[in-house]
């Protein structure tokens, strides 16, 4: 963690200022990335695997969560076994001065699972606001989208729906090696 990120967080004191280059700290991150062990004391299990104490591991994880390094601790569901087959990327061409406001409104829609501003790539790609809508079937997703367009008054905003027709690779991003 850098002092810059601390400064951005205000005056909160670091609870576990361990250098991120320390071998056992790196090992803990790598192990965590593969997932939390499904044991009664998962932090203890991890602690044993990287030569720390359970308290140390808990303090580090709390610290990383407070600092924003870990966005969320939870489970990742795979869509296809749950019958969620329709995966629509809906892209919008919004005037630059309106994109933040519309992004916030779309993100508040319960059907929207991700919402980002991204750069246009003209002339090939004029869209600058991206959101994802998932559902069991295409007609369901399209009717959700129709409802959003009507509720938010977006009839005049150019947009396109890009359904995925095949997932060629679907593994979680790996940011750290072992």
């Amino acid at each position: 963690m850098t002092s810059t990120t601390l400064a951005m967080q205000g005056n909160r004191q670091p609870v576990a200022e361990l250098p991120s280059t320390r071998g056992d700290v790196q090992r803990l991150r790598a192990l965590l990335e593969r997932g939390l062990p499904l044991t009664s004391r998962p932090w203890q299990t991890l602690a044993e695997q990287c030569g720390m104490s359970e308290a140390e591991v808990l303090a580090l994880v709390e610290h990383w969560q407070a600092d924003g390094l870990i966005k969320r601790l939870g489970l990742v569901v795979k869509h296809r076994p749950l019958g969620i087959r329709a995966n629509a990327m809906v892209v919008w061409d919004v005037p630059d001065d309106q994109v933040a406001a519309l992004g916030r409104r779309l993100a508040a829609e319960s059907a929207v699972t991700l919402c980002y501003r991204r750069p246009r790539r003209l002339p090939e790609w004029p869209y600058n606001l991206f959101c994802m809508i998932h559902g069991t079937r295409r007609p369901r997703v399209l009717s959700e989208l129709d409802a959003i367009v009507a509720r938010q008054g977006l009839e005049q905003v150019p947009h396109r729906v890009l359904f995925s027709t095949r997932a060629y690779r679907q593994h979680g991003a790996r940011y750290l090696g072992e």
């Binding site: 997932g35 390094l69 870990i70 795979k78 076994p81 940011y175």
Partner: peptide
Amino acid sequence: KENGVLSRFGPMYHAERLGG
């Protein structure tokens, strides 16, 4: 996990904060 509904159980890292 075994029947493939859960891919993973653990932290979602903030890639940019990790330096990635």
